[in-house]
Simulated scan of single mutants.
Amino acid sequence: MNDFRDFGSARTSEMFVTRIGWWRPYYELSDGQFIYARLSYKGTFKRYAIIDSAADTFTIKRKSLISRTLMFNRGEDETIGELQPSAWKRDVELKMNNGFEAIYLFKKLFSRAYTLTSNAYGDILDVKQIAWGIKKPFTVSFAADNYQQGKPDVAVLTMIGVHFILYRQQQAAAAS
């Protein structure tokens, strides 16, 4: 965890996500100089996601085999929130145990930008997919005020959004 920089020391409002590796890739949130978070997968068939940041390590696992609800854990088993994908839309609702609630959504029908929005904080971040971006598949832009009481680490929230974009791409590839 010592190789990650705290997101509070970021001096830019735009970053990018870099894909590293081909066969077992992992993704890093970077501003070109420092790394703020990393998303990787563990287990056969990408059973669960691991998000490493300067603060801690987090995992995203399914609640049960047939449930759509995903558990957001600190470490392996300390549940700190839930992620609930919508049944008929592309939205994902995030509910943290500390009261923070937000929704990942595409604001427009054919948009490539995945936005995290909250009733209390407004738009927090936008994750935009880059066409033919193999090495840098996503750019991320943040709101100006990222450090408010009760809001989780924005780098971790970004990697959750990247995870769901990759998850939707995996589902679309399996369906075709």
Rank of each mutant, 00 (worst) to 15 (best):
L116Y: 01
N146Q: 12
Q170M: 07
A172I: 09
R90Y: 11
A155V: 05
D126V: 01
T18H: 01
R19S: 07
R47F: 07
S64A: 10
I134N: 00
S30L: 08
F58T: 01
V162Y: 00
I165C: 05
M96Q: 04
G161D: 03
R112D: 15
R112T: 14
S67C: 08
K128Q: 11
G99N: 05
S30C: 12
F7L: 09
T158M: 02
I165P: 01
A54T: 06
E101K: 03
Q170N: 08
A113W: 01
D91I: 10
Y167R: 02
L109N: 15
A87H: 10
S118E: 05
W23V: 13
T57G: 05
K108D: 15
S64F: 02
M1N: 13
I50V: 15
D52P: 01
A175D: 14
T69A: 08
Y114L: 11
Y26A: 04
W23H: 07
L39E: 03
G32T: 11
E78L: 15
A10K: 06
A144S: 15
T57N: 06
Y147E: 15
Y104G: 05
T139A: 03
Y48K: 02
K61Y: 04
I80M: 12
S13V: 09
V140R: 02
I80T: 09
V140G: 01
N98T: 12
F110D: 15
P85E: 13
Y41G: 02
Q148M: 09
M1Q: 13
S64I: 09
N98G: 11
